[in-house]
Nucleic acid binder design. Structure first.
Length: 171
DNA sequence: CCCTGATTCGC
DNA sequence: GCGAATCAGG
């Protein structure tokens, strides 16, 4: 994937918009965050606002040339539907409503939607829709989602909530 | 451990 | 020029 002008434009736009390199990479598709960062640097727009402008990082000392030939990780191709939000309920491990409440630290915070756009969604971002589709204010949760789940911790519970009354007289 | 960007270097 | 590897900080 070469950097076309449009690609670069979008890159700059997203970068300037405050999106992280990984976000931009996920949006662009076909590129890793490293590629994005590299490109950003080459373009000369590093450090848009504030970054780890502290220490000088550690420059490559040397002897890194001995790198095995493993630069082809075969792109797994992201599956972020950039058009329709298909309900890919694919709980491979059967989402059993376990009662093992795990009070780790704090309560599950949620109402903090990152206003994630359809493009910023990745494999590990909560795809919980917020707002009305079609409405300009429609967005997604965007929080960190559990591995294998399209939603974050909070929304997963809602999504996989066991039916309340299933004693519907089934034929 | 997850993420972030930064830098260097082989291609 | 490009991007992986690696680093370093949060």
């Amino acid at each position: 994937m070469s950097w076309t002008d449009e690609r670069v434009e979008l890159l700059k736009k997203l970068w300037a918009d405050g999106l992280s390199a990984s976000q931009v990479a996920a949006e662009l598709g076909g590129v890793t965050r490293n590629a994005v960062i590299g490109k950003v640097h080459r373009l000369g727009l590093s450090g848009r606002a504030k970054t780890t402008t502290s220490t000088q990082r550690a420059r490559r000392p040397r002897n890194q040339a001995s790198r095995p030939t493993r630069q082809a990780p075969s792109n797994p191709a992201p599956t972020v539907g950039a058009t329709a939000l298909k309900a890919d309920t694919k709980p491979q491990s059967a989402p059993q409503p376990k009662v093992k409440e795990k009070p780790q630290h704090d309560a599950v915070v949620v109402p903090i939607s990152k206003r994630a756009s359809i493009l910023t969604l990745t494999e590990n971002t909560c795809k919980w829709p917020i707002g009305d589709p079609g409405d300009g204010d429609f967005h997604f949760c965007g929080c960190k989602s559990e591995a294998g789940s399209p939603y974050c911790e909070y929304h997963s519970e809602i999504a996989y909530q066991p039916n309340a009354d299933r004693r519907r007289k089934r034929a």
